[in-house]
Design a protein around this nucleic acid. Structure first.
Lengths: 257, 257
DNA sequence: TGAATAGTGTCTATTAGACAATATGGC
DNA sequence: GCCATATTGTCTAATAGACACTATTCA
């Protein structure tokens, strides 16, 4: 039970050692697109990146760290994470999800600090303005592999590793791919986004599975214009491709059926 | 970043309001079995239950609550949860899993207390002794539906609801069913356990799917005795049933393939 | 023999998986 | 006509889904 005091009736927290802080740290993922060549229309190169901040003070001064901040008594940790994300990226309404708590003794030299880790998925389209604003600053996107090879502050490397494992799993079992895509997208784009996060993903008959398999075709639907005609895109190819959008259907998975 | 201080070099946590505690609360699930009648061998009635504790002091004195306790600076919250579970059930090596944090302001009248919620899955076989010991005491198992209809302490009803949703999902997507089963079990037992946690689960050709479908048959294997003969059980039926055991295979699910 | 669980046969429709083939339209 | 992406055809094997049917053994 939640009792630090076992045999007293007046509870006073001051008698006990209490945590020195309960911050939220956020692993902000985005997928950047780079055009391959202007010669001909082709699919862009995509790369999974995370946002890091260079610390300006003790501890770990000068090292790169996850964005985050201490939560306040007047808010939930979730709200604190959303607030911090808003401050860092300038955008609200982002997919943000809690995934773990980090409390190893000594993980923070400032004291007993219990960190609550979130991951956020941000469409690169929303990061454009910010990128222009402080490109030279102490906030930068790093390719995930590079971030994992760096000597990050605190236990942030472990947090990033866990976050990556988490979004890899969720990428395949939920529809979070939509966070990295425009409202309407082509099958190739979707396929590419999945592969960017989960490189080993391969599905030769992908288009068929997702469009004509009874159990799966519900998760996306064809985009149509006002007159009911199918909307196409020829942004990546000469031959126009059908545009799709995610529906609200949440697929139920089971290892037993 | 993890900085409560923005423009100072000497960090002193005492300047800030800090949490009054970071407890772990545990939703301990078990499945009880009750024989239906002694007349003939038949499958037992199974029921999903959770363990609750009646509080002896303020706040919420007299009300039922989840077991749990404050974590210490010298341990991780996970260790704290395991310790508490050990104290409550007397058993180590139990499946215990973190699933969420609860930090709504005012959720605990004792102050700013951030609760970390775990669920544990305990085989009823391990709870037998404890049941005998303090059956009349302030620790009891409640059927999950009953627990959810009670006026539990703190925000524990919400925590229990979230835990239930969580294990329902995990029951279908992972092999946690094994926690509720003996080492070797029949297909009917497995089916019954799944249905006890997820009542809407129905799979008419269950035995076939799990034993002869290429993609699924790896998760369980036939139990064999020392001479290599298949092990059978006639505990629930006249006709003996094949015994199975879980393998270490962790099935990978995907909505895209 | 009937009760209660265990397991197989059978049939149709759908899906998986692998490749080949064709479609489109700018360069 | 070539290139790069988009999409369909085709064939075999495996799986899904629904039900009927057989098997086992004790009371």
């Amino acid at each position: 039970m939640n009792d630090p005091v076992e045999h007293e009736h007046n509870y006073t927290s001051a008698k006990y050692r209490t945590p020195d802080g309960a911050p939220a740290d956020i692993v902000i993922f985005t997928i950047t697109s780079t055009d391959r060549h202007a010669a001909m229309k082709s699919l862009p190169l995509r790369e999974l990146q995370i946002l890091l901040i260079q610390r300006k003070q003790w501890p770990y001064e000068g090292q790169w760290a996850l964005p985050g901040g201490f939560s306040k008594e007047s808010e939930t940790i979730h709200d604190s994470a959303k607030r911090e994300l808003m401050e860092e990226t300038g955008i609200a309404d982002v997919h943000i999800e809690y995934f773990n708590v980090y409390s190893t003794p000594g993980r923070d030299p400032r004291g007993w600090i219990i960190s609550h880790a979130y991951f956020a998925l941000v469409n690169e389209a929303f990061l454009e303005k910010r990128k222009a604003a402080d490109d030279a600053a102490d906030v930068r996107l790093f390719p995930i592999e590079e971030a994992l090879s760096m000597d990050l502050a605190f236990d942030h490397r472990v947090i990033v590793q866990d976050a990556l494992a988490q979004i890899r799993m969720k990428m395949l079992t939920t529809t979070i791919a939509k966070q990295f895509l425009p409202e309407e997208f082509t099958i190739s784009e979707l396929y590419q986004v999945i592969q960017t996060v989960v490189p080993e993903f391969e599905e030769r008959n992908f288009i068929r599975k997702i469009t004509s398999t009874q159990s799966r075709k519900g998760i996306i639907e064809e985009a149509k214009d006002h007159s009911g005609q199918p909307k196409m895109s020829n942004r990546y190819s000469q031959r126009a491709a059908q545009l799709y959008r995610f529906t609200d259907i949440v697929p139920q998975l089971s290892i037993y059926s």
